[in-house]
Design a protein around this nucleic acid. Structure first.
Lengths: 129, 129, 129, 129
DNA sequence: GTGGTCTAGACCACA
DNA sequence: GTGGTCTAGACCACA
């Protein structure tokens, strides 16, 4: 599980962490019952203050995704796989809609957008491969 | 020129305004030499504090996109059309890349993403038509 | 609206604030649409760190009781009166149940408990009158 | 002696244990000179870490309620019956006062409170019977 | 002025 | 070791 965070101010760091943990659960990189990396470990890994990670955990707990075992750590709740999968789909669709909306408003047409999508899909793939 | 702004906190409002003005210039809805709506007018139209609009204008001026003419208002600079077109493409491509990256990292594959893109393109078109 | 807070560690301060604000709404000391005292003011009044008050506001916002107006402050949401009245009743009944349970477990019988209740009701009334 | 503990975070677990032992002494379930269950046994019974029980014993010892006999275990001190009875009454009266205070501050009147008390007394009785 | 976020660092209860 | 809470204080976007 390798989380990364972009502190440049676009989106609050703790929300980025929330999202990535949800994705990791959706991906089954994190499974129900499994312990999450501790606040301290995760905060070091992300070069972020422990409070910021704790805040992310708070949110996830309020959302019923994770659960705290006193003194032992934080685990993924039972039904979280399904919920995270649904949320992931919604979150991504929303962001896609935003960007497309902006692109269309900004004067690009559907084909130009498709071209950008394909180009980016390719470059990301290559960046990885 | 009808700008809209989403105050929900994702992106700073003044940056949304900056972006939309650049788009308007790229689209030639705003042309070189043309007067922009005044801070006051635009702030009312967007239901936003005048300071926020002023902040956006500062940014655009620092970027050489617009220029203040004493006593007359704010106008689009000469070379802005080209610059805004380039920036628009870059900005959108960047955001598309971001979203796609997130979607891929989040465990969706290229086809799932294309499906979402098409679905959103359709729904946006319908929402408008 | 005079809130007080007991920092002795029994219950987290931010939860005490949450509770008192809910009570104030239930009492209509705070009404829908009304601005709450600002984080800074309230933190001074309670001799507590602003972050602690902010944390309480977070909780209330997550619970849909209050709403943030950017740059202006925090207001009570529309349906909050009813919700807070219900919650107040539940919260108090729970705490009463806890105490009674403890008292019964601790070896007091129902009449001894009633006696204590009446005695305290009287002494509180006198303390106030 | 059957202790129970509520780990939900309202009150520290070790304090709950302290209180229950005092109650057990007041009830003469535990008598002067009698051996308490060992830290190990009690921690298993309560599904709690031994350190937490040990911490409770520390408190009771500091308060002169119990005493460690080397090699034999922990016993109830001589004068503890009286002291625990007094403390029990005080503790319960205090907690009742707290709750009533909160209820009155929260806008309920004496009769509403009595109603809740009676309702809870009944439901607890039924829960047990 | 308003709230939101973040850092740095402390102390606590619990395992 | 674990997370929870709190303080002190900074910077940001917004009104």
């Amino acid at each position: 599980m390798y989380f990364t965070v972009d502190p440049s101010g676009g989106i609050a760091i703790y929300l980025q962490i929330v999202r990535q943990i949800k994705y990791a659960i959706a991906e089954q990189t994190l499974r129900s019952g499994q312990l999450l990396p501790s606040v301290r470990v995760l905060s070091q890994q992300l070069a972020v203050n422990p409070n910021t990670v704790a805040r992310a955990f708070q949110e996830l707990q309020a959302d019923g995704i994770i659960e705290t075992l006193r003194g032992r750590g934080v685990v993924v709740c039972k039904g979280s796989l399904d919920r995270c999968r649904k949320q992931r789909k919604t979150m991504i669709a929303e962001r896609v809609a935003d960007v497309l909306n902006e692109a269309l408003t900004g004067g690009l047409d559907a084909d130009e957008i498709r071209a950008i999508v394909e180009q980016q899909l390719k470059s990301i793939k290559n960046g990885k491969g």
